[in-house]
Design a protein around this nucleic acid. Structure first.
Lengths: 216, 216
DNA sequence: CAACTGAATGAATAACCATTCATTTTTACT
DNA sequence: AGTAAAAATGAATGGTTATTCATTCAGTTG
């Protein structure tokens, strides 16, 4: 405790700055979910954060930079969660895939505010390549890791007809589509059901490793 | 020719009005793709259409109504294309599903401008329920039709373990996710490849009817 | 405690943009 | 050709919002 506090005191300003930035980013997420990307004003964000109007420009210089930092924030959260799984040497390929699918549909990720932010930015991607460039690198990194896991499972399980690249593309697209479903029809599909759908697909490819539990 | 002209002359005003509205809607699609939903101004749209600033308010009363009509326009285009397939009594269930998947990844639908519009609106759905209500009815209608087709195929092909509802949810989400891929990584995935991925999934469920051609 | 430093505030500013409407142009019909 | 009605124009308006910055506030140091 004392040590932590002492460490905190080492750089009080910069730490406090980080905390304030995070506070503003989280207010931004809430605002984008509530009012949309176009409907979110500086007044909205600062009010949501309980701070004064000028604070965003003080910490982020401009609204555009705040939005970019917000996208980076949720991207990083997602990527680092997955990397923890990929880099865990105690897990088998099968366990890593299971952990991946659990993570993809966990409470932390399936938060409708955050889903709204994801899709708000996807919708602007074509007109603002910056948004895409933030995600492009992590997207291909995840795809590589996932493809590798599918290739391992193919080898270990003797699934001679499986095409790891194809399965990765299909699983990823399926996962994105289920996220969209969860965002737009909250009453229709529950996270657990969405996960079951994804699992059902994996079961078609690796029947000895994964079972679909949606029979009736 | 004469007959057509005469028919046209019956309601010259309203016809011209319809044409102008369509022209403005198509300009709006282009602008949303180029500048995003938030970045699209009335000046942009009217300039894109080669008309004067006040014209949108004359034909649509407000910007918001123009946007709603634009979403309805692409929704209707999609729905009516699918309904033609569903209602074609000359096609078997298998042929209808094939026609459906061909349509989903056809040039007419996989137009990056239109995809950008779809996702621009999806991204605002949570904050503007109106956008969702425009699509909600046709979404469930399509799901019903598709589920019915899968049920027929199950029956006819003796696929005893297939769950038509599950397959419909999975196929629909997969298709949405592939659309997103086509929008954001145009260099990465081609429409024909995306269609092959969707077909690969159908082949897992109905192996005697559909073949995956992505072996190597 | 007094001087100093940086964070925070919010009134004022300036840019932007949807909408209006008086005017002009086009079309339809006699 | 002449006229009336409809369509189109775009300068002017008014409301909104990002950004600025002079001032206030809080924490740190000597």
């Amino acid at each position: 405790m004392e040590a932590v506090k002492a460490e905190l005191n080492k750089t009080p300003r910069s730490l406090s700055k980080q905390a304030r930035r995070k506070q503003l980013i989280e207010a931004t997420i809430k605002c984008i979910a509530d009012k949309g990307l176009s409907g979110t004003t500086m007044a909205d964000v600062t009010q949501q954060a309980g701070l004064s109007l000028g604070i965003v420009n003080l910490h982020f210089q401009s609204k555009e930079k705040l939005l970019i930092e917000t996208l980076s924030y949720i991207s990083d959260e997602y990527t680092s969660g997955l990397n923890e799984i990929f880099n865990d040497d105690n897990l088998t390929a099968e366990q890593k895939i299971l952990a991946h699918i659990n993570f993809d549909f966990s409470r932390k990720i399936i938060d409708r505010n955050k889903l709204a932010v994801w899709f708000a930015f996807w919708g602007e991607t074509k007109s603002r390549p910056t948004y895409l460039s933030i995600c492009a690198s992590y997207i291909s990194e995840i795809a590589n890791n996932l493809t590798h896991l599918f290739a391992l499972l193919k080898q270990q399980g003797g699934y001679s007809t499986v095409n790891p690249d194809l399965v990765c593309t299909c699983y990823t697209a399926l996962s994105d589509g289920l996220w969209l479903d969860l965002l737009i029809t909250p009453k229709g599909l529950k996270p657990a059901q969405a996960q079951a759908v994804a699992m059902h697909y994996l079961a078609t490819q690796f029947p000895n490793h994964f079972k679909s539990h949606t029979g009736h």
